[in-house]
Simulated assay, not measured.
Amino acid sequence: MATRKIGPALAAGCTVILKPASETPLTAYAMARLGAEAGVPPGVVNVLTTTQPGPVTSAMLADPRVRKLSFTGSTGVGRTLLAEAAKTVVSCSMELGGNAPFVVFDDADLSAALDGAMVAKMRNGGEACTAANRFYVQSGIHDAFVQGLTERMAALKLGKGYDPETQCGPMITTKAVQKIDRLVTEAKERGARATTGGAPMEGHGYYYPPTVLENVPTDASLAHEEIFGPVAAIYRFETEEEAIRLANDTEYGLAAYVYSQDIMRAMRVGRGIETGMVGINRGLMSDPAAPFGGAKQSGLGREGGVTGILEFMEPKYFAVEF
């Protein structure tokens, strides 16, 4: 993620202070070292780590030399940063939370939809802002989709991140596992059924097994909070209009996925869903040349391509008379 900020910032002529998440500082240092080896002058790309991000960020935003804040993280933290940046009118780009719907119509290629679902759901173990969380499946294909996804999720091999045979690694913290368990437990108490997984692993505090839930109530917390883990919640729908309404029933609007062999319908549904990005018949949409970003509470601005560079620039207009 840091490259998507540092690259366009340097291309626009900016120097950079990178403050990585306190849980993941080492990659940032490795990137800074690679930058130095590639010829980035001293002081152009700087890494600042801290266990007290609030005071450090406030101090940086209060400095008049800071002209831009680009943040990737939760919507809650993004709101706090926007309020802090407003004090000095610092331009902000925000890549915030997501709660991506994955819509499967009856005429979809079932095998392709399951392939895409596994990519969209399980990349990074579900710890991705673009992860598919809410699977809306039309009635005619619903049962087959549930069975297929259950089989694939149950077959994943859990293990340590550095083991080449691992297909689903640990979550980032015990707190993350506790959040996932809270959302799943509440959904089950309200009538959802786990077809695989559905409970923490005894003695493995950082792991949560790949989980599929069906019959999830649309008003369960699981339907409205970002899961950020290997949990697929499946809902049944009947009509195109219902699918769009359910997909939009969230404060987030980052990514959405639509599967149908009727491309015109897929495009129509994609236009109706309030998101910044839509993947049609594919479970991976990110591309360095494409604008990455969301709508509603999922953020402000875009990363990637020409649009991403413009985020670090100010337009200037000259009116000249000779």
Rank of each mutant, 00 (worst) to 15 (best):
M264S: 14
L156G: 02
A255G: 13
V44D: 08
N46Y: 01
L300D: 03
D287R: 09
L96D: 06
Y317V: 11
A192I: 05
L10M: 09
K296L: 08
D262W: 11
V40P: 13
F322L: 13
E240G: 07
R193W: 02
K19N: 07
A176C: 09
M118H: 03
V103G: 13
Y317K: 11
P209Y: 02
F322M: 12
S111W: 00
G305Y: 07
V137S: 11
I234P: 05
I273H: 04
G98Q: 06
P164A: 12
G98Y: 07
A295C: 11
A113V: 06
V320A: 14
K87P: 04
K87N: 09
M122D: 01
T51I: 08
A223G: 04
G205I: 00
G229W: 04
T166K: 07
N99S: 09
Y259P: 11
A62P: 01
E242A: 09
T57V: 12
I309W: 05
E95A: 08
M122W: 02
A32N: 11
S139T: 15
F102S: 08
F237P: 06
T218W: 03
P230Q: 05
G197E: 03
H224V: 13
A131W: 05
V320D: 10
V104M: 03
A11M: 15
Y235P: 01
N133V: 06
A120T: 02
V66G: 06
V90Q: 03
V40C: 15
A199H: 13
R236F: 02
T211G: 07
R271S: 09
L114G: 06
L96W: 02
G39T: 09
D143C: 06
G272W: 07
L114S: 03
G191H: 10
R193C: 07
R245T: 15
R4A: 15
T307Y: 07
G305V: 08
L284M: 10
S74E: 13
G76P: 08
L158E: 06
K5V: 09
T72E: 12
F105L: 14
T50G: 04
